[in-house]
Design a protein around this nucleic acid. Sequence first.
DNA 1: GGAGATTCGTCA
DNA 2: GACGAATCTCCC
Length: 751
Amino acid sequence: MPCVAEILIPLALDSAYSYAVPAGLDLSVGEVVQIPLGPRETVGVVWGVRQSPGGSNLRPVTGRIDVPALPDALRELVDWLARYTLAPKGSALAMALRLPDEAALTETIRVGVRASGKAPARPTAARTKVLAVAADGAMRGKSALAKEAGVSLSVVDGLIDDGALEAVALAPEPVAQPPDPDHARVPLSEAQEAAVRELVALMNPAPDAPPPTDAIGDPLPAAAADGKVPPPGAEAKAPTVLLEGVTGSGKTEVYFEAVADCVRRGHQALILMPEIALTAQFLDRFAERFGARPAAWHSGVGGKRRERIRAGVTAGEIAVVVGARSALFLPFADLGLIVVDEEHEAAYKQEDGVHYHARDMAVVRGRIENCPVVLASATPSIETRVNAERGRYRRIALPERFGGRRLPDIAAIDMRADKPERGRFIAPALVAAVRETVTSGDQALLFLNRRGYAPLTLCRACGHRYQCRNCSTWLVEHRFRRALVCHQCGYAERRPESCSECGTFDNLTPCGPGVERIAEEVAELFPDKRVIVLSSDFPGGAERLRAELQTVAEGGCDIVIGTQLVAKGHNFPHLTLVGVLDADIGLTSGDPRAAERTFQLLQQVTGRAGRGEKPGRALLQTYQPDHPVIAALLSGDSERFYEEEIGAREAAGLPPFGRLAALIVSANEREVAEAHGQALARAAEPPDGVMVLGPAEAPLALIRGRYRFRLLVKTERSIDLQTYLRAWLARGPKIRGNVKVAIDVDPQSFL
DNA sequence: GGAGATTCGTCA
DNA sequence: GACGAATCTCCC
């Protein structure tokens, strides 16, 4: 009987296409094939094979492509992701299927050179320099040798031609060495040891131990759609564990031991990091513990290297991958552990193309692979805390800092009582604290989450406020760049000399502070102190930033002024004072997660203080010292924050408790969108709220979508919603146009 | 994701 | 009403 293959193509297509399988070609599920699509040839993955009676008029599969088949677990993940996010299946597949591209195949072979011992025929000055460097007989890269000798590449090439240097093709640099789980076990505190024991025990339940009490993660869509959610404890599932440790408690060392245990048992481990934190510093730290660097996977890894990592992961030769969210789609042969570091980070959310949250997909992949997932954070997201409280996730806490260090004392500066001088932004009490800190030789950090010089510019003559022409936000003055910049969309214009509205010359006033302006104030207050401003938009890029972070860490500066990038990762052992210049920033943003985000950010920032020998303290400049978030920070009791916030969310129906709400964004047919909204509101089970936004109000990201309009729905239980919406759409309100439904579990991105 | 068909938006 | 730009539809 002729054979038909269902082929999923990595394009924005909702379902697999059917192709005839030519006689003699024996295809199995997961294999990569070449197929005709319209006028061209593309690749696809076999999603199913079936016997089909009768001659078919289907186009035939062209042939098999010689790459490893997509593992079952990944196909399951693709199906799951597509159903959950309502993304086209093909788009989900595209994330898991990255075929070698042209650049990857034509990678140049690296050439190493070393002295051959022969003297060059014509020893010029440049040649002598090169040979002096190469005299040690060591093997070097061609360009490395030229650089070290301070000459151009052609000199080296000349010496190779001459025979004075011999060139040898080098084996490609290994993407990862095998980690040694017992390389250098660092001494752990008692609390860390206990956490490690608990974690390892959870990962490897004794065969006769009772199964975990509850299923983890969301029910799989298949189960939910059928209404067959497995009863608690039905199967022994690998657990999802929240590893919650205050800043400086040594969470990393704890999960490193989990990784070591996983490697010892011969399985692979994946450590996910939010993009920004994927630094060389972390890889070094890993190398100290395991004696080898892990494979690093992120958008910057390209070409052949990417392919080699994929191949190594497929073959099971690479034991540990440290990567950004896309590493979730690597074809691991035997995944034994997933760690999501800083699980609360918003960077785990993919906002373009397929919308997904890497933390949640990690839990899903863990479930599919039946491997444990560790979510690590000092300030977990509310969702994760709620999941832990409900018993879906296990929780291991590290309530104290490593090495007996204390968490910084946090105090408020009430800005209503202790006002800065006119035109200044640092309150006298904070100025005094900084002075005290720097005179005793310690470092102070002034934190303000505002880039640029001033967040608003207005004309004193006519009151004109400079606004972005694309968005409705104020333009931020950047003095270094002499420009007014929109932080929303990137629009920039030259800072005008005279008002563009009334023409008055030199009468524009900056309103409010940005880090550049604070730097100015600090320079006046502490003219003889070394100051470094750390802001993501400063010239010099990542290179300079790294150097400056290094300087700060080594104590080569007295006062640091920084935006949110100082909140994460880096260890500043000399820092004993953190001053938050505007603790209220972000509390009033209307974002349902404003409180959570502010709490997390300020907790992380203030936690920078006192990581070294001396204890630290933090001062928060605030106009609302009684605000629940500020009060929780001041009390030093984060449990209090979580309790209050979870209670408040539950009462207000905000995520993760929001029941059902719909948002309709219409790019160009507002009346159609409104009809949808009204129909949805009249539906048998109306959502809690329907919102219709026109193109002007809609976030840019949504308008850029390729659909005429788009229905976005958010709730924790998106699976139920999806079923509901499908039913609603099937009943079909008579509205023309192409309806696409997308689900985002996190509404804040488009509210 | 890409090509070809269709509709939109703007200008006279 | 025409024309370039934006958007939609179709690929088994």
